[in-house]
Amino acid sequence: MDKKSMQYIEKNTDNQIRLLKTEMLFTPLLVFLPFIVGVIFILDWFNRGFIPGDPRFNSELILGFIIIIGNLFFDIPFIKSLKKFSQHKK
């Protein structure tokens, strides 16, 4: 695919701002849910794997960390860009 086709659909500014407000509403879900799921995996490993000494749960520990780190890697620039947009709006 050429670079032009990778561009986003152009929208009028008013609609774009409305959409961004919707996006901001979703932000807590997009950012926090993966963290919660990651922590659940780690806690599950701790309670059912680490304490009784069951190695079958080790993959849950790694999965938990992958989800948390993977999300953190993209959440930081995403939140920065949202903050940048909010500053522009002011």
């Binding site: 561009q7 986003y8 961004l20 993966p34 992958i66 989800i67 995403f78 860009s81």
Partner: peptide
Amino acid sequence: RINSVEFDAHWYRRVFHTFGASFLFYYI
């Protein structure tokens, strides 16, 4: 402002992808 909107959509798509990892909760 338009530039910042494009930048934002880019990161929004990325975060939407990584958010998908939460669906693994299905298995637990």
